[in-house]
């Protein structure tokens, strides 16, 4: 039973991974790509790790998979944040159809 639930989790994770990478190809500018790929790939991989935990049970592999999922949930947004800031400071402007850029109006904090 837990085998089947784990496989369902892994399948959901694979679908999210796929959409994240599709967004990486299709979306028009750095910040939009960062949004799509960070959200989808992080939660997709966490779902795969949780499915691994359900399949193998509480063993060395399962506990390490849970630790790895927690670590990814904590660190992937931090690196996305740092990359967005770095990209904006290195001079990459927003997509030309963007609505508003308050960050540039306020002069890019130190």
């Amino acid at each position: 039973m837990s085998n089947i639930i784990g496989i369902i989790f892994i399948a959901i994770g694979l679908v999210f991974d796929f959409f994240g990478c599709l967004g990486l190809v299709r979306l028009p500018d750095v910040y939009n790509r960062l949004q799509a790929s960070t959200k989808c790939v992080t939660l997709g991989t966490c779902s795969i790790l949780f499915g691994t935990f359900l399949i193998v049970g509480v063993s060395a592999t399962g506990v390490k998979a849970l630790i790895c999922a927690t670590f990814l949930l904590l660190t992937a947004p931090v690196s996305a944040h740092a990359l967005a800031r770095g990209a904006h400071k290195s001079g990459v402007r927003l997509w030309e159809k963007s609505v508003v850029d308050k960050y540039q109006e306020d002069g890019e904090l130190k």
């Binding site: 679908v15 999210f16 959409f19 994240g20 599709l22 967004g23 299709r26 979306l27 028009p28 500018d29 910040y31 939009n32 949004q35 799509a36 959200k39 989808c40 927003l94 997509w95 159809k97 963007s98 609505v99 508003v100 850029d101 308050k102 960050y103 540039q104």
Partner: peptide, 17 residues
């Protein structure tokens, strides 16, 4: 995100607030 990426017209209006 899956809806926006899969849609043929990519319905986004981005900006920094």
């Amino acid at each position: 995100v899956a809806y926006r990426v899969g849609h043929p017209d990519i319905p986004i209006h981005p900006g920094i607030v």
